[in-house]
């Protein structure tokens, strides 16, 4: 299985929409078997989705992503794990161990139900 991560300075890129580098990780039986970097300079939602499809990516781990991009990628049959933050190796380990949804790897305000709905006090 191929998992793609949008990366920047050895961490998850803050915003998928304009991320410029993909890290493709090959995973077999919950173990990493290889990884490579891919330039990700295309800009449009469809070209980004097409690039991920061409690379046979099944899961995308990224930071924030706008709904236009997210919809286009999900329509291509790729599962998105959005709003992830942290160092690349730690994120990959957490994914392999099934702990990616831990609040440690969630962007601030994007993890729990409370986080997802910031409410005005007044």
């Amino acid at each position: 299985m191929k998992v793609a991560l949008t990366v920047w300075e050895n961490r998850i890129s803050p915003l998928f929409d304009c991320a410029r580098t993909l890290l493709i990780v090959d995973i077999t039986d919950q173990t990493e078997t290889g990884r490579c970097f891919e330039p990700f300079h295309c800009e449009s939602p469809s070209s980004r989705a097409a690039k991920l499809s061409d690379l046979k990516v099944q899961v995308l781990i990224c930071g924030a992503v706008s709904d236009l991009f997210a919809n286009m990628i999900e329509t291509s049959g790729i599962r998105i794990i959005p709003f992830v933050a942290g160092a690349v190796d730690e994120v990959i380990d957490a994914y392999l161990m099934g702990a990616i949804s831990s609040s440690k790897f969630k962007m601030p305000g994007c993890g729990t139900a409370r986080d997802n709905g910031y409410r005005k006090e007044n």
């Binding site: 304009c18 991320a19 410029r20």
Partner: peptide
């Protein structure tokens, strides 16, 4: 927290 993980703008990375 790091500002880029809170602000998440198109400027952060580039």
């Amino acid at each position: 927290k790091n500002c880029w993980s809170v602000f998440r703008s198109n400027m952060c990375e580039i």
